[in-house]
Simulated scan of single mutants.
Amino acid sequence: MERIVANAFASPSVVMIGNFDGVHLGHQALIQHAKTIASGHGWRIIALTFDPHPAMVLRSVPPEHFLITPTDVKLYWLEQFGVEFVKILPFDRQLAAVPALPFLAHEVKAALNAHAVVVGFNFTFGAQGAGRAETLIEWGRLNGTIVDVVEPVEGDHSAQVVSSSAIRQDIQAGQIGTANERLGHPFVVMGPVQHGDGRGRTIGVPTLNVGVPSCQIMPPYGVYAGFLRGTDGSRYAAVANWGVRPTFGQSLPVLEIHVLDKILDDWYGHRVSFDFIEHVRAEQKFDGVDALIRQIQKDIEKARQLLT
């Protein structure tokens, strides 16, 4: 994937506009519609998105623990689902004040050579959110631009419309399976392997400490089954503890990952991902190290069963 940094895009394009936080099933529906249009005309696909998230600017949402997919994770999933190019617009109050039609004329038509635009059913844009799907459809008619407004998508086992806000609620409640269903892919944390205190190795359960971006939403403290992925494409079944390790009196949360049935080489400094698949149990304080070790062995067995 390529981030667009030039002011103009030469090839005719199909532009999808949105925050794409989560790159969930609804966003994937937009991508599929864009692919259908693009393949029929030989055009390129572009995702036009924003950083920071507009809610952080317009609604003063705190930047900590909000995003489902920080920028690097968002770009990863967009690429996985077939998006060729991404343009990230810096979002501030100056951009927010641009009226809807000038925004379309400059940022979409002129800058990206849009011959088609794809948005979600609840898409709003321009100053004070005055631009709606109807605005876009009329603009497309007058400018000879195809406009496709994608209808809402529901989860497989829920009548609730798939949305980033619903997925955030799932993650905060520890409902990882439900969140993953609505995402259409695992909830992922991506970060560098950092040096820890080495305590896991001393008790026979070596772990990798992965740095969690402060902007990313996280589930409740606890133990989770999932998969560790390296940048080389390697993938290992694993169990992770996200929390403050109360048995040892920690105060800052840490994501510790233990790979099942595999001893890894030195991965310090490497960038890795952890796919959260299922919640195993809540974090708890134990009377001592021996009790903790016994519980960890139970966690490992349960994680192995969940991931089989």
Rank of each mutant, 00 (worst) to 15 (best):
F103Q: 07
A105F: 05
L112R: 11
E79W: 02
Q160T: 14
Q80W: 04
F121S: 12
P102N: 09
A47E: 03
T124Y: 05
V117G: 00
A114M: 08
A110T: 14
L95I: 15
L78D: 07
A159K: 06
A110P: 03
A130P: 00
F50D: 02
D72E: 11
G126P: 09
L104S: 02
I46W: 04
E84M: 06
T69G: 05
L48D: 00
K109M: 12
E64M: 11
H65F: 08
F85A: 13
V57K: 02
G140Y: 13
V150W: 03
L89I: 04
V147I: 09
T135C: 04
P102A: 13
L67G: 01
A47D: 05
V117F: 07
K109N: 00
L67S: 03
P52K: 05
P63D: 11
F121T: 03
V117K: 05
P62Y: 11
H115E: 15
E134L: 06
E134Q: 13
L101G: 00
I146P: 01
K74N: 02
F103N: 04
D51R: 12
E107A: 14
I45F: 00
P90D: 09
R44N: 09
H115T: 10
E134T: 03
Q128W: 03
P52R: 05
G155S: 15
I137D: 10
T69K: 09
A111G: 05
E138N: 03
F50S: 08
F123V: 05
F91S: 09
F125E: 09
M56E: 15
P152Q: 10
P52A: 04
I146M: 07
V149R: 13
V153Y: 06
G140T: 12
T49W: 06
P152E: 10
L142E: 12
H106Q: 01
L95K: 13
A100G: 08
R93T: 11
V86D: 02
P52N: 08
A130G: 00
I45Q: 03
H65N: 14
Q128V: 04
V162H: 09
G120Y: 00
V73I: 12
H65M: 06
S163Y: 02
A114G: 07
G120K: 05
N113V: 11
I68P: 00
P99C: 04
R44Q: 10
A127V: 07
V147F: 08
Q160I: 14
